[in-house]
Design a protein around this nucleic acid. Structure first.
Lengths: 304, 304
DNA sequence: GTCACACTTGAAAGGTATTTTCGCGTTTCG
DNA sequence: CGAAACGCGAAAATACCTTTCAAGTGTGAC
């Protein structure tokens, strides 16, 4: 009973705050005109809230239809609702004027600036991710993982580290979890899965073939599949029962996308882990305690 | 657009927040039906924002005309604008209702709270780390790494992932970096190091023997040694030329220290990486670009 | 190179929501 | 008690939003 419903285009909740983040996340899947609209909205929520469909269409040099389409893509039933959300957002940002260390990291930035900007960006990424995370999907993923007979995790490149992190933690609370970075081994293992097992694919782009393939196999075998991706509309979602969306921060030459996506992925993975730990508290608690113990012994006694 | 004069009744600014107060002020000058509408609006701004004129008219047992009249009296050009203001107000009071993120994550926290608390904690950790990071030490570490003939990184457990992350990134910009999670291999490799090489140890506790040992060897061999630790006064610092301090967030049963220390370590590692990328920009830039390319080809073509 | 196809897009038709008009009923005051 | 003013809602008029549809545009196959 794993593979039905799916909602196809995600039941995006009409996210409250992180609209700019959502725009960034969905931007790649938008057409040119829609991007213009989305950009205008993200740039000046307050201003746009004051405009009618027609007004916004004119402002962006597009048509009403396009505006409505964009609103839909952002998760609202129509423009009216987007407008309401915008009004709320405008009120928000009015109260808490952002200080904005907005500029990109440059080659000649002093090291202190690099630290500040990087920390700020990562904080932003965290906020965006938290705001954009669908708790229903997360809850479902937690439920599936908690009772899974076995959990396989797929991720390559930077995402493989996130996968290993998750596997490490799940193992620590007594679950059977494996992270696979090797696509071939991943597929080989995916074949073993069946209903009651869980497969998790981690890919920022949502279209990493090496990760999609094992997930597809797991999906076909009847396992419950979870995708952690920055592109919820990407190919990977096709084979995912539950999609957890990570946020996409602006990237620069010095700061590749992999860096902020990792932050976002780790937050999602941590949430998943804690959810599972909660659900399996009975067995997780002693396991956690035991692993504390084990670690403590590997430290030299003197801690001063 | 039929905008004639209309001002007539007061130049009330479309007050942002104090709507309830305005209702009270104006209440005496309202007719009975209008009072009912005003009351409903003041009672539940959020709820009313979700209603259409007709809906609100029905709810209050009045007519659309009366609703519009009330909106006018409150200082808005029409109901549409009152509704927008209401939405803004709703967003406001929603934000004020912070779910006490300050408390620890509990076993029975709903999943949404888990996400919020976790994100908040991590943001805190980032801020702390950035504030506590010694930029002089960081600068020195960057300088050493930029010109290193070879970089060895030691980390076990959760820290091993951070080490691998750093190694991955340094490799990508053309440096020779290796992460060692196996203590024996680490020592074996450390023996090879000499002046002009760099060794980096990552340990939250500052007293992880498996990591200290290879660092000591590297130190003795004359390599420049760097420690990334949460305990700058720990044993590891003994053999470190430069110490980069990570922050320690409170931990709880469900949220092991490894989790927040990882966030902190990653920030430090990212700063180190970007610093190096800046310094070696000439050679790093093409390397970075090249790796983008390589990655792009592994994705399915459609990215639009 | 050319054809076929799928996708984007805006114009205009089609619906809702909001605003205005209008007249009935009620109150108020002479 | 009667006249004038006011409150009120039904319904018409309008503005706004949504949907449909056909033309334009780029893309891949052959």
């Amino acid at each position: 009973m794993t593979n039905q419903v799916k909602e196809i285009f995600s039941g995006d909740a009409p996210a409250p705050a992180a609209l700019a983040a959502k725009v960034r996340t969905l931007s790649p899947s938008m057409t040119r005109s829609m991007q213009r609209v989305a950009e205008a909205v993200a740039d000046d929520p307050a201003g746009c809230a004051a405009l009618t469909v027609t007004g916004l269409a004119e402002l962006t040099g597009t048509s009403e239809a396009t505006v409505v389409r964009t609103a839909r893509l952002l998760g609202y039933p129509g423009y009216r609702d987007l407008r309401l959300a915008l009004a709320g957002l405008a009120a928000h940002q009015e109260s808490g004027r952002a200080p904005a260390i907005t500029t990109d990291i440059a080659v000649d930035d002093p090291i202190a600036d690099v630290v500040a900007k990087l920390a700020y960006d990562e904080q932003q990424t965290l906020a965006d991710t938290a705001a954009g995370l669908d708790t229903v999907q997360l809850g479902a993923a937690v439920a599936a993982a908690s009772t899974a007979r076995r959990i396989d995790i797929y991720g390559v490149g930077a995402s493989s580290l996130v996968g290993m992190d998750l596997a490490q933690k799940l193992l620590r609370i007594g679950l059977i979890a494996h992270a696979h970075a090797d696509p071939h081994l991943a597929v080989t293992n995916a074949v073993q899965l069946r209903s009651g097992d869980v497969a998790i694919a981690i890919t920022h782009s949502g279209s990493t073939g090496d990760v999609i393939e094992p997930l597809r196999v797991a999906f076909d075998r009847g396992a419950t599949t979870i995708a952690i991706t920055g592109r919820p509309d990407g190919p990977v979602s096709q084979y995912a029962d539950h999609v957890l969306t990570t946020s996409t921060a602006r990237e620069s030459e010095l700061r590749p996308a992999a860096m902020s996506s990792r932050t976002s992925q780790l937050l999602v993975v941590d949430c998943l882990f804690i959810g599972v730990a909660q659900r399996t508290y009975e067995s997780a608690a002693p396991a956690l305690a035991a692993s504390y113990e084990a670690l403590a012994h590997r430290h030299s006694p003197r801690t001063r």
